[in-house]
C-alpha cells in the first residue's frame, strides 16, 4: 500500500513538472524567436490588396508588408508561411506559424480559438455606383437594384441596413458583380471599399464612386492562446506604429484608401 501511494505521488510530481515545462515553453515564444533570430508569419497571397503575388511571384500587399515591418522591428529574419483563408487559424494552432497576419477580422467566434492583438487595419463594406445614380444614405436604396457577391461580408451586412423595397441580387463571383455594375445591369454594388477605387480606375468613363459606408470590420494580428509575451509585444508594436503613422502608410500604399481610426482592443 505504501509503495502504491509513493508511486502515485511520484507520477503526480512527474506530470506536474512536465506540465510546467510545457507551460514555460509556451510562455517563452518571444525568447525563442529572438534566440533563433527568425519569426514565422502566415502569408495569404490570394486576397488582394492584403496579400498577393507581384510580377516576380514575390508576396506583397498590406499584410505582407506589415509582417516584414514586424520582423524588421524585432530585428529577426522573416519566414512567410503560405496559407489559404481557411488555414490561417490552423497554421497558428499547429505551431507552423508564430503570428497570423492575414487580414483576420476580429470576431467573437474566432476569439474562442486564438488571441487577437489590437487591430492594425480595417475593411469597410460600402455601397458604390455611378455619379448619376442618386444614393446618399441607406434610405435611398429603396427601389434600386443592388448587386453583391455571395459568401462575403457584404452579403451579411448590406441586407441589415437595406430598407424594404430594395432589390438585392447575388452573383457567384466578384468579377460578375463588377461586370454587372459596369454594364448597368445593377444600379449599385455592395463591396469592399478598395474595390470601388479599383473599378473607378478600370472604367474611368463610368464615374464609379463610393456612396456611403455600410459597416467596418477590423482585423488584427492573432497568436496562439497562451503566448502572452508575444501578444504583449505585438500590442506595443501596434500602439507605436499607429502613433508614428507607419500603419496608415502601409495600408494606404497597398489598398489605395485611407485607414479609418483604429479602436483599441
Amino acid at each position: 500500500m505504501k509503495f502504491v501511494t509513493r508511486l502515485l505521488a511520484a507520477a503526480t510530481a512527474a506530470c506536474l513538472l512536465l506540465g510546467l515545462g510545457i507551460g514555460q515553453a509556451d510562455a517563452q515564444v518571444l525568447d525563442r524567436i529572438m534566440k533563433e533570430k527568425k519569426i514565422r508569419i502566415t502569408a495569404q497571397v490570394d486576397s488582394a490588396p492584403f496579400g498577393i503575388l507581384d510580377k516576380n511571384n514575390k508576396p506583397t500587399g498590406s499584410e505582407i508588408e506589415t509582417a516584414r515591418q514586424i520582423a524588421k522591428d524585432l530585428g529577426v529574419e522573416l519566414e512567410l508561411v503560405q496559407v489559404s483563408g481557411p488555414q490561417r487559424i490552423p497554421a497558428l494552432l499547429s505551431d507552423r506559424a508564430d503570428l497570423a497576419i492575414s487580414s483576420l477580422s476580429i470576431t467573437t467566434d474566432r476569439a474562442k480559438t486564438v488571441w487577437f492583438a489590437s487591430p492594425h487595419g480595417a475593411l469597410s463594406i460600402v455601397i458604390g455606383g455611378a455619379k448619376s445614380v442618386n444614393i446618399k444614405s441607406a434610405a435611398d436604396l429603396a427601389g434600386k437594384k443592388i448587386g453583391m457577391t455571395r459568401a462575403t461580408l457584404e452579403e451579411q451586412e448590406v441586407p441589415k441596413i437595406a430598407p424594404p423595397g430594395t432589390n438585392i441580387v447575388f452573383f457567384d463571383e466578384h468579377a460578375a458583380t463588377q461586370q454587372a455594375l459596369l454594364t448597368g445591369q445593377i444600379d449599385a454594388i455592395g463591396c469592399a471599399a478598395f474595390l470601388i477605387n479599383d473599378l473607378a480606375k478600370k472604367a474611368p468613363d463610368k464615374g464609379i464612386e463610393t456612396k456611403f459606408t455600410v459597416a467596418t470590420a477590423f482585423y488584427a494580428v492573432a497568436v496562439k492562446p497562451g503566448n502572452y509575451d508575444l501578444l504583449q509585444w505585438v500590442n506595443t508594436w501596434v500602439f507605436v506604429n499607429k502613433l508614428n503613422g507607419v500603419l496608415a502608410k502601409i495600408y494606404e500604399q497597398n489598398t489605395g484608401v485611407k485607414l479609418v481610426d483604429l479602436p483599441t482592443l
Binding site: 448587386g147 447575388f170 452573383f171 460578375a176 454587372a180
Partner: peptide
C-alpha cells in the same frame, strides 16, 4: 450566375 432568382440561385443564397 447572372442573378436570376431561380431555384439554384435561392439555394446558393
Amino acid at each position: 450566375a447572372i442573378s436570376a432568382k431561380e431555384l439554384t440561385a435561392i439555394a446558393n443564397t
